[in-house]
Design a protein around this nucleic acid. Structure first.
Length: 274
DNA sequence: CTCCTATCCTGCGAGC
DNA sequence: TGCTCGCAGGATAGGA
């Protein structure tokens, strides 16, 4: 479900309802694990009563930064995870797994049918194994070009696989990589090592506008994604290629194609993208 | 090393 | 209607 734009939308909403200084009042785990075991009580208990410093995003991870500096609660939404602001007296749903209750009365509920999500404690220095090898955040590449020394530029893997690799650029997922490659007019099947400098610039130049437009539209809701208030995004109505197989390309009228590339559904216009 | 496949899990839509 | 199959926004441990 959630790629960088969706996580960023959730982060901004969480910031609205959880101002700095709000204290974690209590927590509740309704099961022992998501993708990994949930943190041990003794680790989690250290956060109770502590004030929130801020809520940050790193790639597709949310960080509830807590006192002391460097400590945080780490959340990844996987494919079907959602944080919602619980209403007073609402019923527990089948896949509600976690609750975080805050001193201002907000109760955050984590719901995740597929349980590919992650929730863990970061003890110090914002260090966590899952954050360790993330590449540059996709929102940070701006007008830059890839580092010419980067080994990813020499990769024999298809460009789409390289862009999905979080060690290279962190935060892109299947939807936005398809959309970015369409706008850069590059075939997802091209080997990364065969991408010219100018083409790399086209890819980088198109990344920020796509992600920003998606954030402004509240992200993309295909099925599961909902924001903190359970509202949907609308960026899916502006997809150029994703989920548009056999439909006409908006640019050239050729039919948009769909095939699998490294196990992921891939959409592209074979006339526009070379 | 690098790259790709299978896998975790549930729900849903298509097809029969 | 009811079933079975395949696929879904992610990420990683293996095998080739």
């Amino acid at each position: 479900m959630p790629e960088l734009p969706e996580v960023e939308v959730v982060r901004r909403q969480l910031c609205q309802i959880l101002p700095a200084g709000t204290r974690l009042k209590s927590y509740l785990f309704r099961r022992p694990d998501l993708r990994f075991p949930l943190p041990a009580r003794r680790n989690m208990d250290r956060f109770v009563g502590k004030p929130l410093r801020s809520i940050q995003r790193r790639s597709k991870y949310l960080l509830f930064e807590m006192d002391p500096v460097g400590a945080a609660l780490l959340s990844h939404l996987g494919m079907s995870g959602r944080w919602r602001s619980g209403a007073c007296g609402e019923e527990v749903r089948k896949h509600d797994h976690l609750e975080l209750s805050w001193s201002n009365g907000v109760k955050l509920i984590y719901e995740d049918p597929r349980r590919f999500g992650v929730f863990d404690c970061v003890e110090r220095d914002y260090e966590h194994p899952l954050l360790k090898s993330l590449g540059v955040d996709a929102l940070e590449i701006g007008n830059s070009s890839p580092d010419p020394r980067s080994p990813f530029l020499k990769s024999t893997a298809p460009i789409k696989s390289v862009l999905l690799n979080q060690k290279f650029i962190a935060g892109l997922g299947n939807i936005y990589v398809n959309e970015i490659l369409f706008r850069a007019r590059i075939s997802p099947w091209r080997k990364a090592q065969a991408i010219s400098k100018m083409e790399w610039q086209r890819i980088f130049k198109n990344t920020l506008p796509v992600l920003q437009a998606a954030i402004e539209r509240g992200g993309s809701t295909l099925k599961d994604y909902r924001n903190v208030n359970e509202g949907s995004g609308s960026f899916q109505t502006t997809f150029q290629v994703y989920d548009r197989e056999d439909k006409d390309c908006y640019v050239c009228g050729h039919k948009v194609r769909q095939e699998f590339l490294s196990g992921r559904s891939t959409f592209w216009c074979s006339r526009c993208q070379k």
